[in-house]
Design a binder for these strands. Structure first.
Length: 307
DNA sequence: CGCATTTGACCAGCGC
DNA sequence: GCGCTGGTCAAATGCG
């Protein structure tokens, strides 16, 4: 909260470049961003090339703490997810765009309860009523004076023809809105489990209609209803959605390389020239220091990374 | 009949 | 302070 000024393009925390070994139809990207992830994605004009890989830029409004947590969570996903590539059909492996943790407005002081404590419940959300709303209390009434508290979020960019990707959980659509700067509407889903407050937003990229941006918010307090015989998306999505705030959460980035752009400085609003973003994301042939690869180095075969 | 989806309205937060 | 946009609610409708 001070030296951000010098940063020309602060929002780039991680540049994720993915190159799935599954083919052009199976590419996705993990994106580490903040609350405006979806907006950012479209606004940044993150683009991808059929034969290349998806790129994304992140932006985190939180303090370094957030980032620390982020980095910490940047472990690797269980190998199982990797091996699960098989099912799918229409749903391609999704790449988590990133943990998006952010409490609206000044609520940041409280951080994310769910993050601090990896409990399955999030009192904050429930109390706000914005999310879980017991039928007894008029939500609209409760909404007044109550701030919406964001739970940790994770966004996935997935190349898929279907909007709603199977992830092992059951979702109920509770809203749809047209979003600015995008011809595609955004759909809002909620986990059908009454005790689960996890929400999910699904929208298509304005840049590439074949890209589905799925954002999970909160963490499941239950297991999946059952995996439809594998499917990367299922495991990954489930893993992310279910372990977002788990300190021990692990993520796996198939054939993906992460580069740390600016170690910090995220105070800049989301209005950043795409060029800048591109400049950070494009020049990927840059050899990464061992430290950067460390996370992947342990799990991603060299051949995979050297594409 | 029960559950999921659709859709318009309402509310809160944020930027100007 | 006002307007805009995102997010949520809830009644209506559709489908299995």
């Amino acid at each position: 909260m001070d030296d951000d000024k010098d940063k020309p393009d602060p929002r780039t925390e991680f540049s994720a470049e993915s190159s799935w070994p599954l083919g052009a139809d199976s590419e996705s990207v993990y994106f580490f961003g903040s609350d405006r992830e979806s907006s950012i994605l479209s606004e940044f004009g993150w683009n991808l090339q059929p034969d290349e890989s998806y790129r994304s830029l992140d932006r985190i409004d939180e303090d370094d703490e957030e980032r620390s947590g982020l980095a910490g969570s940047l472990g690797m996903l269980e190998n199982s997810s990797l091996q699960q590539q098989g099912g799918g059909g229409s749903s391609e492996p999704a790449v988590p765009i990133g943990p998006i943790e952010k409490a609206r407005g000044g609520d940041t002081s409280t951080s994310n309860p769910s993050v601090s404590s990896s409990s399955s419940e999030d009192p904050a959300e429930k109390s706000t009523g914005s999310g879980g709303k017991p039928p007894e209390i008029p939500s609209k009434v409760r909404k007044k004076g109550q701030k919406r508290i964001r739970q940790p979020r994770f966004a996935f960019m997935t190349k898929s023809e279907v909007d709603h990707l199977e992830d092992g959980y059951r979702w109920r659509k509770y809203g749809q809105k047209a979003v600015k700067n995008s011809p595609f509407p955004r759909s809002y889903y909620r986990c059908t489990n009454s005790k689960c407050t996890v929400k999910k937003r699904v929208e298509r990229s304005s840049e590439d209609s074949t890209i589905v941006i799925t954002t999970y918010e909160g963490q499941h307090c239950h297991h999946t209803v059952g995996f439809p015989r594998g499917g990367v998306i299922s495991h990954e999505a489930a893993a992310f959605a279910g372990q977002l705030s788990s300190p021990a959460s692990q993520f796996y980035y198939p054939g993906m390389q992460f580069r740390r752009e600016s170690p910090l400085s995220i105070s800049q609003p989301h209005q950043v020239p795409i060029e800048a973003a591109e400049s950070h994301a494009l020049p990927r042939p840059t050899p990464q220091p061992p430290t950067d690869e460390g996370l992947l180095g342990d799990i991603v075969p060299p051949g995979m990374r050297n594409r």
